[in-house]
């Protein structure tokens, strides 16, 4: 157990130089809440790839329609039902505008002598699918973002008040919430759409009516948990105003759950919009959204699959990416997963 040390020079037993400033230094590197979360998200490759994909789709939703020289609403019946044709790619035998009709390989572009390139093909009315897909994406994203933001505002305010006031107020607010959440949201959404005139605003409103409940619940739960924590009590005993407590102490700690929840409401709103359009009570023609495009494409799905497949791919990418990012953020913000 003991190893006798060899001869050691005397001077080394002098007292060590004292450095008191160093004493209370925290040895571990300090990380702010956001920085810590970012470190975790960055490690999650799926979340990063998703973020890049989403960014790409958002950019395309903004500039996509103007990349194509065709107007998304302009009809040209002579150019109806064309398959995709892309320059360069057509030289290697894909997306060259050929298609099989009744087992016979044909190329409508050549038959009709069409010089234009419709990158994603055209629909039955000869509208350019490329610009329509991106206009549709724009509309879908717009509805989803709007719904998510309104949900967030209502939900956070409701949850904060309910959790922070507590007592009678909380009780009444909770009973209201319980009753509303008992009504299946699908039913509310459908009923609302039957009253309101179909359109972007009415779909958003229909989605918001039940959408905020989840956020309100999560925020209230979190506030209740935080409210009784020592640092809030400490701040309260030091005479902090409610306002200060809310904005300085509670909100920053709520930001995690709020972000995560919003990250999950966006895909759910996109799904619902598409779903409603698919069963025929969403946006009406000639308005384009991913849902209406899929619905439209489904009618001729067996003969012209590209009309449905392309908007389906876009919506799937958006939904998968949103979910993966939501998962990544949840793992990053969830203190339980720390270690």
């Amino acid at each position: 157990m003991m190893n006798v040390p060899e001869k050691i020079e005397k001077h080394r037993f002098d007292p060590a130089p004292k450095d008191h400033s160093d004493l209370e230094k925290i040895e571990k590197p300090q990380l702010s809440f956001g920085k810590d979360a970012w470190l975790r998200v960055r490690k999650n490759k799926a979340a990063i790839v998703s973020a890049v994909l989403l960014l790409l789709i958002v950019v395309m939703a903004i500039i996509g329609p103007s990349l194509s020289k065709f107007d998304p609403y302009a009809q040209n019946v002579a150019h109806g039902n064309l398959p995709p044709r892309v320059p360069v790619l057509e030289d290697i035998g894909i997306f060259d505008g050929s298609q099989k009709i009744g087992g016979v390989e044909t190329n409508k572009y050549e038959e009709l002598g069409i010089e234009e390139y419709y990158w994603f093909g055209t629909d039955s009315l000869g509208r350019d699918l490329f610009s329509r897909v991106w206009v549709g994406t724009r509309v879908s994203l717009y509805i989803a973002l709007l719904a998510a933001v309104i949900d967030m505002v209502i939900g956070v305010v409701y949850g904060l008040i309910s959790g922070f006031k507590g007592g009678r107020v909380d009780n009444v607010m909770q009973r209201i919430l319980e009753v509303i959440s008992g009504i299946p949201n699908l039913i509310v959404v459908i009923l609302m759409l039957l009253i309101l005139k179909p359109g972007i605003m009415s779909i958003t409103i229909a989605l918001v009516i039940t959408g905020w409940i989840g956020m309100a619940r999560v925020v209230r739960g979190q506030v209740l948990k935080l409210r009784n924590q020592e640092y809030i009590l400490a701040s309260r005993t030091l005479g902090a105003s409610n306002f200060r407590l809310l904005f300085k102490h509670l909100l920053p700690n709520l930001s995690g759950v709020i972000i995560i929840n919003t990250m999950f409401t966006i895909p759910s709103a996109i799904f619902f919009e598409a779903f409603l359009s698919f069963i025929g009570i969403g946006l009406q023609a000639p308005e384009a959204s991913l849902g209406t495009l899929i619905e439209d494409g489904y009618k001729t799905f067996q003969f012209l699959p590209h009309l449905m497949v392309i908007p389906c791919i876009v919506i799937c990418i958006i939904l998968i990416a949103c979910n993966l990012m939501g998962d990544g953020l949840r793992d990053a913000f969830d203190p339980k997963m720390r270690d």
Binding site: M1, M2, V4, I8, H11, R12, F13, D14, A16, P17
Partner: peptide, 11 residues
């Protein structure tokens, strides 16, 4: 002591 900062003490 100075040595404490440089070398681990044995048992």
């Amino acid at each position: 002591m100075k040595i404490d900062l440089e070398e681990e003490p044995p048992m």
